[in-house]
Design a protein around this nucleic acid. Structure first.
Lengths: 245, 245
DNA sequence: CGATATGTTGAAAAAAGTCAATGGCAGTGG
DNA sequence: CCACTGCCATTGACTTTTTTCAACATATCG
């Protein structure tokens, strides 16, 4: 297993009212007066690649918004086997269970360098007491998490669908926002932990996509290249034109 | 595909304050005065086996509590393939997305005759406006749904775990509450839709459990019999004593 | 520049999918 | 009441996929 970094660097406090993330995340819908209710400081944190944002089972005292980077949520079985149950992208929330429960349900680990805002649960509680504008957003976010979890099962969890097709579906979740032909490269172990398959099988699945012209090596080991249209086709389970040649 | 019944029978209105389900479901934590705020009538409905409680994509205007019976939540892909993403038991909520969204995310179908209470979204909204005692419960419930969805992926979705073991884990979710040796019998198609495998594979997996002495035929086709301890062992991936003989 | 991690590939075994035939049970209609 | 019919469930035979174990290649980091 890869060495895991524990440290985050603190970039100071964040003014939520002027944050670029404001509209896509938790606090959209709040008014200027509402923001004044946020009395605690919101920490702005930077994590290196492979750093732990929080641990499964540890006391959940804050919710996080992901400002940049990519984060995996890992759920460990009692035997120590880990499965990745979600991939989080900029704008997504981490650790929403802090609002409802005692402890985190996953370990959150960065797949790339990541920037997150740490929002103490007390801030959420106060806002909920003082304004009605947070709640609908909270419901929506919770519901979208459920929807994503269900989609994870249905899209990635069927052995009637080929490993290559399911791998392509994962790759689509890993595309760079600004360049759909660039894909964040994750380890085969992680790919296996997402799809519930052995890393060798994941390697072979990616091999198929490469031979079909869907996927190429990137110039650095941090990412792959792809043909976006071919990737979409592969994710639907179709064979590519290259394959038929 | 099995014929699906569409009809529910109406058993009158329900007084939530005196409901046996009250403590395990949505309204635990409310006071007597809070119950007075429920002005709309709560319908008490009975569904036959294989009846649809609500359809995926239809407008979501009510949340349901399951009072008795067993319900599956099915998510259909655009191609019409259905996967079961959750099994609901008495005390569970159905259609919580009505509080957050416009439409139901699944089709809810009864696996046995089922009794449900239909709670209009407006009731939830009013209670949330008038009292602070509903919200924490709502958060908890939402979080427990996420946790169940994640457990579904990790417990049932790994091809490194044998089909028989995963089938045993499903069977554990189907046990009668009052008699842990009795298991609601579902079709092999449903078993396959839960585990993402072909129904023939599901049949063979159950065959293994039968040969190992974990599972037996019931006296009617509505249920199976099992050795509870052996089932637990099988769900952990262990071989039974019978098997070693 | 080498030590260690991760990725790739091969080969054999195990598991699962698929197609097809058979068997059993329940409900229907004579 | 019983044979008929239709729907599942079961099983067999075969194919394909995946796992597993192992060797080897490649890349990264000290």
């Amino acid at each position: 297993m890869r060495h895991v970094k524990l440290q985050a660097t603190w970039n100071g406090h964040r003014d939520c009212a002027s944050c670029a993330m404001r509209s896509s995340a938790l606090f959209s819908g709040l008014t200027e007066q509402d923001f004044a209710l946020i009395q605690e400081p919101i920490d702005d944190l930077t994590f290196a690649e492979d750093a732990v944002v929080y641990h499964m089972g540890s006391p959940a005292d804050a919710v996080f918004t992901l400002r940049s980077g990519l984060v995996k949520l890992v759920r460990y079985s009692p035997e120590g086997e880990g499965r990745i149950v979600r991939l989080l992208r900029p704008g997504d929330l981490l650790g929403l269970e802090a609002v409802a429960g005692e402890r985190y349900d996953h370990t959150a680990i960065s797949l790339t360098p990541a920037q997150v805002c740490k929002i103490p649960r007390t801030v959420i509680m106060r806002l909920n007491n003082e304004t009605t504008r947070l709640l609908p957003r909270l419901f929506e976010l919770w519901q979208s998490i459920v929807r994503k979890a269900d989609a994870w099962t249905t899209d990635l969890g069927s052995s009637q669908v080929s490993a290559a097709t399911r791998a392509a579906r994962v790759l689509r979740k890993l595309r760079f926002e600004d360049d759909p032909s660039r894909i964040v490269r994750i380890s085969l172990e992680d790919m296996g932990a997402i799809l519930g398959m052995a890393p060798e099988t994941a390697s072979r699945a990616l091999g198929v996509l490469k031979r079909d012209g869907v996927l190429q090596k990137g110039t650095t080991r941090k990412y792959w290249r792809c043909d976006p249209a071919a990737l979409d086709a592969a994710a639907e389970g179709e064979k590519t034109a290259v394959d038929e040649a």
